[in-house]
Design a protein around this nucleic acid. Structure first.
Lengths: 171, 171
DNA sequence: TGAGTAACTTGCATTTTGCAAGTTACTCAT
DNA sequence: ATGAGTAACTTGCAAAATGCAAGTTACTCA
């Protein structure tokens, strides 16, 4: 977990990957979104060894994804509570789940997301907040933001296209 | 990369993580979406050692994310072309980028996504394809799909809620 | 003949991961 | 007051993954 090349550090995806770019972190967050808060809840649900869970929870807490809260004084008992930052990560999990269902569950899904009020299944897509237009490889382009370095600007300017060659199946 | 616990294997997020749940894979895909296709393009852009890049590309190719195509006979030269399966992964990268920009770039973004035709910046959100309603922790619930096992049904039925406690900042 | 280029592989040291077992700090029922 | 139970971890080591440097293959082109 240490790719400190500048081109990675400056990219929002590269930075995100430093916080959650380890598969246990994603799975821990998934469980947290499903309501897990206690050490042993995560441990049992994931089948993860306690030392590893301990390290991952510490890392996620340092990264501001969880707050470690003492919910019982004597004996001391702790719970891991999601922060707003972590809550904002939910769409990533949703997108990942949708992709997994489409491409990695050939015989049908095991879990689907549904509307809480009427139980109708959701079909998640990513759109622009303003006009609800889907964001696809075909209509998007990466441009330098206000904080882009000279190197980043050069890099983005030299992109062949944001619309790369795509092969048919392989699926 | 070997969490083979059944509760992970049966979850679409768990499966997804087996394919792309390694931070280099995400970064390689990011570069591919920006147009990279050749071994040395990835190597230079990422600052990744060639042996590791080789392993990752092989894994992603085996997983059906890339097709390895010979684009020159003599001397033999190869390129890695994204499959439809990989193209469908694009929304996940978009969601990750949006999250990274919001929470990991306090001084402003380095990269933003924009509309290719009018260059207006996109603000990506995840919505339901049918009614364009945002999918949030508050209005979503996880339900068993057609292929859910007995164990998965039990697990989903026993969820406290899909609306866990959330702490304020920590950010 | 000799320099250059693309796409890798090999060898080996370092780092990370993961299982099993042990620890701390209590409560509660006998 | 002893012993069982529970929650939340830590420690010790073995195994696996990662990462750098250097080498290899198979050509082209001046």
């Amino acid at each position: 977990m240490q790719p400190r090349s500048p081109s990675i550090q400056e990219c929002p995806v590269g930075r995100a990957v430093e916080t959650v770019g380890e598969w246990w972190s994603i799975l821990i967050l998934r469980d947290a979104f499903q309501g897990a808060t206690k050490f042993d809840e995560f441990a049992q649900s994931l089948g993860i060894a306690p030392n590893i869970l301990s390290r991952r929870l510490a890392h996620l807490t340092e990264s501001g994804m969880f707050v470690r809260r003492r919910y019982n004084e004597r004996p001391p008992r702790y719970e891991y509570v999601l922060t707003d930052k972590a809550r904002d990560f939910f769409p990533v999990i949703v997108a990942l789940l949708a992709w997994g269902n489409k491409h990695l569950a050939p015989k049908g899904a095991s879990i689907v997301l549904a509307n809480r009020s009427d139980a109708r299944p959701f079909d998640p897509i990513v759109v622009d907040a303003a006009d609800k237009q889907p964001i696809t490889l075909a209509n998007v382009i990466a441009v330098p933001g206000p904080r882009a370095s000279r190197g980043m600007r050069a890099r983005l300017a030299s992109l062949k296209a944001m619309n790369p060659a795509v092969a048919p199946a392989g699926d």
